[in-house]
Amino acid sequence: MADSPAPADQPERAPSDDIGLLPAELRSWMQLLAAAGAIEQQLRSRVKDAMGISHDEFLVLCLLADQPGSCLRMTRIADLLGRPKTRLTYQVACLQHAGLVTKNSACGDRRGVEVTLTDKARTLLSKSSRPLADAVAEAIARTACVQRYTPLQYLLPTSQGSGEDTTEQKK
């Protein structure tokens, strides 16, 4: 195997040999995972540079920013992000220490904890979100091009250059 011209982690036969091995849904899922991975990789350092927080902490802020009242229960955040509650507790503590969120008892449930964005977080998000959104759009476009998977373009709010909402294009 050492004499093989292909790297060890690459298949020895052309990928087209097994084109029918995976159903289209699984192939699409794998392409979506690859796109998500490319976007996360693109954002990790940019989020740290722009906001001084980790990518996972940024995801918490984005979830809160997109909620009425900018508030969610800890259990709901953990569910939406697919993160263990113990890890989320650490992330929220870091955000709280930075003055970006507050924690309070949930109304009517002493055991529940609600997390709310602070004005400092709103200001930080408003300053940083446009360049980060542009980085997401770049990563989606690049991944779609590299994988020749045009449907990834529909993840963008507008199609490249047309200025039209993609929801209208799908109809």
Rank of each mutant, 00 (worst) to 15 (best):
G37A: 04
V92F: 14
S159C: 09
D66T: 11
D56G: 03
R122T: 15
K127I: 10
Q42W: 06
P151A: 00
R142E: 05
M30N: 04
R76G: 07
T75N: 12
L100F: 07
R83H: 12
P5A: 09
P7S: 11
I77W: 05
I19T: 11
A24R: 14
R83Y: 05
Y90W: 14
L63R: 07
C62D: 01
H55M: 06
E164V: 10
L59I: 03
T75L: 08
M1R: 10
T118E: 06
T75A: 15
G37I: 05
G99H: 03
M51W: 05
P151G: 00
G37M: 00
E114W: 13
T166Y: 09
A14C: 08
A14N: 02
D134M: 15
L88N: 02
K171T: 10
V101M: 00
A36G: 15
A106N: 11
M30F: 07
R27V: 08
C107F: 05
A50I: 06
K127A: 04
G82K: 02
D56S: 10
A38I: 04
A2T: 05
C107L: 06
G52A: 12
R122V: 14
E114H: 13
S128R: 12
F58C: 09
D3F: 01
G99T: 02
A14I: 02
A135Q: 04
A14P: 04
D119I: 12
D109V: 06
A34D: 00
T150Y: 15
K48W: 12
M30T: 06
G20F: 07
S128D: 13
C145A: 08
V115L: 06
E57Y: 11
L155T: 06
L155K: 02
L125S: 01
Q42E: 10
L152H: 04
T102S: 05
P131W: 07
P15M: 01
H97M: 05
D18I: 10
P157Q: 12
S162N: 01
K171G: 13
